[in-house]
Simulated assay, not measured.
Amino acid sequence: MRAVLITVIFLQLCVGLECVIELPNAVKKCHFGDTKCIKETANNLIRRYPKGISSIGLKPLDVVHVKDTVLVNDPPVGNAWYHFELVNQINYGFENVTITEVHGFDEDPTSSKIEIKGIIPRLVYKGNYIAKGRMLWMVNINSTGDSESEFFNFFFEFSLKVQTEYRNNKRYLKIYQLVPNVGLDRWIMWLDNFFPDNSDLTILINKIFNANWVEFWNELEKPILEIFTSVFLSIIQNTLENVAYDDMFLSNKYIKEL
């Protein structure tokens, strides 16, 4: 607790005194636009620092807290409607991500689109759910309980547009647009206590979901994308805020002179 407090105070002082925060020496720097090197460095950083790097604001990758999200929110009218919300969610598995492709990160980061592609073998969300509605032949739903979702071979692609701002005579990146594209091989979900008075019916509804997960994915892909995007941004935003873009890379000046 004391170490966390000291780190927070240090970061606040750095903001006030315009301190320069740099990447640890163990993180290999690449030249601007050297996407092969950037990909290798990103993967090495992920493997070496699953708990994050507090000194630069990189949050832990192995345990990520997720904001509460409403997946379905029908108006409560008529014979069939549904409200489903995920709360107190924690994400596990980002520490096992492999970056497969990187594009962009040129000396002028605004001159080209930045793209990041990767795959996560198993991504897990655990937390609680809130379900309300009317379905299944006028059956009323009003339940809460534990929830768990597992996404297998979860692959993603992010297209970023950024702008730069100057501080301490150095450039810092700001993401102003992020377009995600994701896919997966399998989704397994379990909702405890969905029918509090009928455990058999709870088991049945979970079996129905998992047997028809593709249809549910197609229906819920947009809000799930929003969750995944917010998780990704929450991991990297503080680092971009703390570490100057110019300090993340090696200058290409020497290469040009050769």
Rank of each mutant, 00 (worst) to 15 (best):
I208P: 10
I208A: 14
I208D: 09
F209T: 08
F209A: 07
F209G: 06
F209S: 03
F209P: 04
F209H: 11
N210I: 13
N210L: 10
N210V: 12
N210M: 10
A211Y: 11
A211N: 14
A211G: 15
N212C: 06
N212Q: 13
N212V: 11
N212G: 12
N212E: 10
W213K: 07
W213H: 10
W213G: 05
W213P: 10
W213N: 05
V214L: 10
V214N: 09
E215S: 14
E215K: 13
F216G: 07
W217N: 08
W217L: 14
W217R: 09
W217V: 01
N218K: 14
N218S: 08
N218L: 04
E219S: 12
E219M: 14
L220I: 07
L220T: 04
L220W: 10
L220R: 06
E221V: 15
E221Y: 14
E221W: 01
K222A: 11
K222D: 08
K222V: 07
P223M: 01
P223E: 02
I224P: 00
I224A: 02
I224N: 07
I224Y: 11
L225E: 11
L225P: 01
L225M: 11
E226M: 08
I227T: 10
I227H: 03
I227A: 00
I227W: 04
I227Y: 04
F228M: 12
F228L: 07
F228A: 00
T229M: 00
T229S: 12
T229V: 09
T229A: 01
S230D: 15
S230M: 08
S230C: 00
S230T: 11
V231T: 07
V231H: 04
V231L: 05
V231P: 02
F232S: 14
F232D: 08
L233S: 07
L233H: 01
L233Y: 06
L233W: 00
L233Q: 11
S234Q: 08
S234E: 12
I235V: 15
I235L: 14
I235E: 05
I236Y: 10
Q237M: 02
Q237D: 14
N238D: 15
N238Y: 09
N238F: 04
N238R: 10
T239H: 04
T239I: 11
L240M: 13
L240Y: 09
E241Y: 13
E241R: 11
N242Q: 11
N242T: 14
N242D: 04
N242Y: 12
V243E: 06
V243F: 09
V243W: 03
A244L: 03
A244N: 06
A244T: 08
A244K: 07
Y245E: 07
Y245T: 01
D246C: 04
D246V: 03
D246L: 03
D246Q: 05
D246K: 05
D247G: 06
D247R: 00
D247L: 13
D247E: 12
D247V: 05
M248P: 01
M248S: 02
M248K: 02
F249K: 03
F249N: 03
F249V: 02
F249I: 13
F249T: 02
L250R: 12
L250M: 08
